[in-house]
Write a protein that binds this DNA or RNA. Structure first.
Lengths: 216, 216
DNA sequence: CTCGGTGCTGTGAACGTGCTGAGGACACCG
DNA sequence: CGGTGTCCTCAGCACGTTCACAGCACCGAG
């Protein structure tokens, strides 16, 4: 367990408490030190303060995720504004607690995080030169913005979460459309057509009789 | 996305809001209905109220987890006591929000949950230099891609699951074709011919009077 | 060698699947 | 109220796939 916190007393308290729970705990006091430790450490999870000297917690997570490190991150902050929280989560944190927090809750959330294991999905999905940011609701293709309607976006989102895999029209109907039995699978064909028109003909492969596949 | 909430107005508001985000949303109003839906639905995630008629949210998650269902659960509750929260998380929920909650935060937390999907299971069948990936619906022979039709793929799939064994035409008809009594065994011969043409003459051996065997 | 049975393959027809353009229903907005 | 954008249905078309059929090749037994 890695604790990145510059306030010495809180850091020490956390360390003691977590050690009492049986965790092995390392502490880093600055942003850069925390990033370094997270990169090389092989920790199960990380508790991360937002206000840090040298590098903010937001930036730290963002870099970590950009480098394909997926260890669970629980973010701590004195800011309890709804947008602060949303920003932290959208940077790639997995949970967010505002100070002052209950120690009981911290532990429970940590357990929930560890149960889930390392996440596998970045905050921004990227396949080839396609980029999709669920939080900002934006899609770019080769750094050029592509405007999509809600449906188109939802469809692409679903496909980009499993690039290269064949996904059936039924599955798409179930997840992207409201699973009503009376909607014909043709809707999917129509929307795949729209996406192809906007993203390029060969991004979406048809696998006859099976479904569609996002070219990797 | 599954919303389990008995308060009709909140449920409707959630449904509308999430649909606007492009989610396909189902709503269940009671505990048992929610559990049922979660069991059968194939949802990406679930938003779950704690106070429910018939079955509490706690109990619902506990049962779901006991049955080896791992879909992400975001728990909603009016109780903000630290132990309520810890209990919810320890029952198996992945996140916990207290009412009233900010819609922005709900969305951000939902995204964080969805980011961590179920781990991928790389089931790739391999026999000799043949490789068949059911999820990607892809076949390669010595690292060169081979395109197969649905039938051809299904046939090869069946054969590759029992390499080296002799499999009769009748069995293939039963499993690869929908066991209709009036289809002649000749279809199998035809498709074995197709596969041989695409994969190489000697990959599929004929055992006269018995069936076919995939060379190992 | 001959012969019957078994398997192989080219041909072609029927069928299914997917793609597309046209257009209606609906909501939103000036 | 008309204009605009989105969602979805529908029908026609194109083309790939599936399968039946028939003739031929091959194998093993007598």
């Amino acid at each position: 367990m890695l604790v990145v916190e510059d306030e010495a007393r809180l850091a020490a308290a956390l360390q003691r408490g977590l050690q009492a729970e049986g965790f092995a705990v390392d502490v880093a006091a600055t942003g850069p030190a925390g990033l370094d430790a997270a990169r090389h450490g092989g920790y199960d999870a990380m508790i991360l303060d937002v206000m840090l000297p040298g590098l903010s917690g937001y930036e730290l997570v963002r870099r970590l995720r950009a480098e394909q490190h997926w260890l669970p991150v629980l973010m701590l902050s004195a800011k309890d504004g709804e947008y602060d929280q949303a920003d932290g989560l959208d940077c790639g944190a997995d949970d967010y607690l505002t100070k002052p927090f209950s120690y009981v809750v911290l532990l429970a959330r940590l357990r929930a995080l560890l149960r889930r294991g390392a996440p596998e999905r970045p905050t921004v999905l990227a396949v080839g030169d396609l980029r999709l940011d669920p939080a900002r609701r934006r899609v770019t293709r080769a750094d050029a913005e592509v405007t999509l309607t809600t449906r188109e976006f939802a469809l692409l989102d679903y496909l980009m979460r499993r690039p290269g895999q064949v996904i059936s029209k039924i599955e798409l109907l179930d997840h992207v459309w409201d699973a009503s039995l009376d909607t014909a699978p043709n809707v999917v064909e129509v929307y795949v057509g729209y996406l192809r028109r906007k993203l390029g003909r060969d991004r979406l492969e048809t696998v006859r009789g099976a479904g569609y596949r996002l070219a990797t």
